[in-house]
Structures are given as structure tokens and as C-alpha cells.
């Protein structure tokens, strides 16, 4: 049993450069607090972890299923507000308010999905754009309850230790990304959602003609995306100790798009790389306060100019080569496939 696990690990992780890099990266992340307890660095990484969950959930919905959502902040914001209201009005603890916030994201996912069943392409995108604005209107209409433009502040912390906060955010991020990766893996033998999401994106009519209940799978994509974006929103509210209108901002929705496109859309690891590069870079650029946004935009444009499929996909293509016969990933310098010995050239 152990021998088989080791063999699988060697074949599925160590033999594939992309996964090996991910493993090493995860080990580095685990070792950061023993190396430095600098609160600013840990804060930056905590928010990076939170936004990774948010961006990956957008990738699952829009990259894989093709339901381009320009109002993804709705899920983030509704979960943030739900957690905040439960925490401040009922005194519930974060370990309870965060999952309930995520469930509020699920409800929002179902609500947004309703027009998605009838609309496609830019029409769907425009409708999704409106949802956070509608929720914002509701928040302002009931400002005595929601705090209006001031938001709800003074939320309980998840813990009193920055290191514990960091490990919690890292754990939640890793588990969330692994679940979403598995759900979108077209080659998975466990779940077949990945290949169906791909099919819906490529040609929904053909997918339906093949007997796939596309309505059910689109609903599933919205629910899963809503759930994980909700987790990100609720975590963010408790780390920031405030939920406010900025959680529903258009800017936040577009950030998810930028991070994902930068890293590589429809790849799951793309948005992970996108957030892990761009969020710390944006912090780093504080030393050029006047030109921070300009330099940031320049970096994004330059990278996308030369790596149009995203930085993570570009690196993967340099390191890995797919076997034309069995579709298995091989390290780039191999001449033949490690499984079927087919020539890779």
C-alpha cells in the first residue's frame, strides 16, 4: 500500500515539473513563519491566500465553464456581509460565520445562475455585472442594519496570532484549490465534472445533444464558485475586521479577471500563480507610490504581450511536454513518453 502510494507520488508529482514546483512552493509557504514573523509579510501572504481562493473560483466558473462573470465580487461581498452580521448581531464565532457566509455565496450563486440559464456571452456578463450593484443598493437601503457606506466594523478576529491566521488561510487555500482542481480535472477518474465543464464552454448545444444536463452542471459551477468565493469573502471580513461596500466593488471583480488572465485562464494553477505574483508585486511597488499603478499595469501588459496564455501556462509549456498518444505530461527534455514510450518529437 505504502509502496504503491510512493510510486503514485513519484509518477503523479515528482515526474511532472509543474506539480513538483507546486509542491516545493507549498513547502516554502509552510516554512515562512519559522523564517520570518514580520507581520507585514504575513499579512500580505494571508491576503494572497484569500485572493487565490477568490480568483480560482472565478476561473472555475468563467475559465472552465465559460460563464463569464464580471460581478464575481457579489459572492465575496454577500459572504462578507453575512459573516459580519452574524458575528456582530448574534455574536457567532468566525468558525461558524465563515461557513455560513460561504453558504450565502451558494445562494447568491443560484440566484445569479437563473439568468445564466437563458443568457450567454456578453449578455450574461452584463447581467452579472449588475448583481453586486443591486446588492449595494439593498445595503444602502437598509443602512441601519448593514452599516450603509460605513460597513460593519469591529468583527471578531479568527485568532490573536498572525502566524495562526497565516496557517489557517494557507490550509483553507490549499484545500479549496485542491477541491476546485479535482472538480475541473478533465482526466479525473473520480468526478466527471471537469470534462463536462469543458464541453459546456466549447459547445453547449453539442453537450446537451450528448445527453448532458447542462442546466444542472451550470448550476453546479455557480454553486461551487459561489461557495469558494464566499469562503474568501468571509475570511477577508474577519481578517480585516470589517465588511463594507468595497467588498462588492467592480474593481474587486475585475481583479479576479486580471489575476486569472495573467496566470493563465482555465488552468486553476494559473490564478494561483497570478495572485501569488501580482498581489505581492503590488505591495512591493509601494516604494514607488506615485507610479505604482503604472508600473503594475506595465508589467501585466508586457507579460501578456509575450505570454498571451498567461505566465503559468507559458512556464508549464516550457517545462512539460504532453504525449501525443496517451496525453500524459512529461518533463520537457524527455525524448519518449515515460508511460507509453511514444516519441515526444
Amino acid at each position: 500500500m505504502i509502496r504503491r502510494l510512493i510510486k503514485d507520488f513519484q509518477g503523479d508529482v515528482l515526474a511532472i515539473p509543474g506539480r513538483l514546483i507546486a509542491l516545493v512552493f507549498l513547502l516554502i509557504l509552510l516554512l515562512i513563519p519559522p523564517i520570518t514573523r514580520e507581520p507585514y509579510i504575513l499579512r500580505t501572504l494571508i491576503f494572497t491566500n484569500i485572493f487565490v481562493i477568490f480568483a480560482v473560483s472565478w476561473d472555475l466558473l468563467s475559465g472552465y465553464t465559460g460563464q463569464i462573470n464580471f460581478g464575481h465580487a457579489l459572492f465575496f461581498g454577500i459572504a462578507a456581509y453575512t459573516s459580519a452580521l452574524l458575528n456582530t448581531h448574534l455574536g457567532w464565532q468566525p468558525w461558524l460565520t465563515i461557513p455560513i457566509g460561504a453558504l450565502a455565496g451558494v445562494v447568491a450563486g443560484v440566484v445569479v445562475c437563473l439568468p445564466a440559464l437563458r443568457l450567454r456571452g456578453p449578455y450574461l456578463s452584463l447581467v452579472t455585472l449588475a448583481f453586486p450593484l443591486i446588492l449595494l443598493g439593498v445595503i444602502f437601503a437598509f443602512s441601519d442594519f448593514t452599516g450603509g457606506e460605513l460597513g460593519i466594523s469591529g468583527l471578531d478576529r479568527i485568532s490573536n496570532s498572525r502566524t495562526v491566521d497565516y496557517y489557517i488561510s494557507l490550509l483553507v487555500m490549499v484545500v479549496s484549490v485542491l477541491i476546485m482542481w479535482k472538480l475541473t480535472d478533465a482526466r479525473s477518474s473520480l468526478v466527471r465534472t471537469g470534462v463536462i465543464f469543458h464541453a459546456i464552454r466549447e459547445d453547449e448545444i453539442a453537450a446537451r445533444a450528448s445527453g448532458i444536463n447542462t442546466v444542472r452542471y451550470k448550476l453546479l459551477a455557480f454553486i461551487v464558485a459561489g461557495f469558494f468565493a464566499g469562503i474568501a469573502g468571509a475570511l477577508n471580513a474577519h481578517f480585516m475586521r470589517i465588511a463594507g461596500p468595497s467588498n462588492l466593488d467592480l474593481f474587486l471583480s475585475f481583479q479576479a479577471v486580471i489575476w486569472t488572465v495573467f496566470g493563465g485562464i482555465a488552468s486553476i494553477y494559473g490564478p494561483v500563480a497570478g495572485v501569488y505574483i501580482l498581489y505581492p508585486v503590488m505591495e512591493f511597488l509601494r516604494i514607488f507610490p506615485e507610479h505604482r499603478i503604472l508600473i503594475f499595469a506595465g508589467i501585466v501588459v508586457l507579460i501578456l504581450l509575450f505570454m498571451p496564455e498567461g505566465v503559468a501556462v507559458w512556464i508549464r509549456d516550457k517545462l512539460e511536454r504532453e504525449c501525443p498518444r496517451c496525453k500524459l505530461s512529461n518533463i520537457a527534455f524527455r525524448r519518449t513518453c515515460r508511460a507509453c514510450s511514444t516519441s515526444l518529437y
Binding site: 514580520e38 507581520p39 507585514y40 499579512r43 500580505t44 491576503f47 477577508n236 480585516m240 470589517i242 463594507g244 468595497s246 466593488d249 474593481f251 474587486l252 503590488m282 505591495e283 509601494r286
Partner: peptide, 16 residues
């Protein structure tokens, strides 16, 4: 644009 950014800026100002 971003209160998250503002809180990070404050932490940097104080700790870095």
C-alpha cells in the same frame, strides 16, 4: 479603491 490595501499600507508604515 481598496480598504484592504489601506490596511496593508498602514501595517507597512508601522512595522517596516
Amino acid at each position: 479603491l481598496s480598504p484592504t490595501d489601506a490596511a496593508a499600507a498602514m501595517e507597512r508604515l508601522i512595522t517596516v
